[in-house]
């Protein structure tokens, strides 16, 4: 079964995304911050991680860099979920190694489609 890690400090968004992904048939782990995410990754390596960019402490972009820097997690697909839509923020996300970018406000249905598309591309 495909495992997805959802990292967001906003409990409502984290639980909503996790709920939607679970409904779509994914196994979902959750974390509220960067440290929790790294601990979750150590317990179970996800196939894909959805990271909120703006979090207290380690940002989603820092977390993405950290995943990419570790050979064990370098191939985890990363989708950034953020309210920051400026061109430079998008560039910073891709420069850190993100595979895709969804801007808040977002549609949960569209988010799941983007997850499915990313995973399908990776399988090819």
């Amino acid at each position: 079964m495909t495992a997805v890690l959802v990292v967001d400090d906003d409990a409502d968004i984290r639980d909503l995304v996790a709920f939607k992904l679970a409904q779509a048939g994914y196994e979902v782990d959750r974390a509220a911050d960067g440290a929790g995410a790294l601990a979750a990754v150590a317990r179970r390596r996800p196939d894909l991680a959805i990271l909120d960019v703006t979090m207290p402490g380690m940002s989603g972009i820092d977390l993405c860099r950290s995943l990419r820097a570790d050979p064990e997690t370098a191939s985890v697909l990363v989708l950034l979920l953020t309210a920051r839509a400026q061109e430079r923020d998008v560039e910073a996300g891709f420069a850190a190694g993100a595979d895709d970018y969804v801007v808040k406000p977002f549609s949960p249905r569209e988010l799941v489609s983007r997850v499915e598309a990313l995973l399908a591309r990776a399988r090819r």
Binding site: D10, A83, K104, P105, F106, S107, P108, R109, E110
Partner: peptide, 10 residues
């Protein structure tokens, strides 16, 4: 709280 972060039918 959710209202400002979602769009579409949600």
């Amino acid at each position: 709280g959710l209202l400002g972060k979602l769009r579409g039918s949600s």
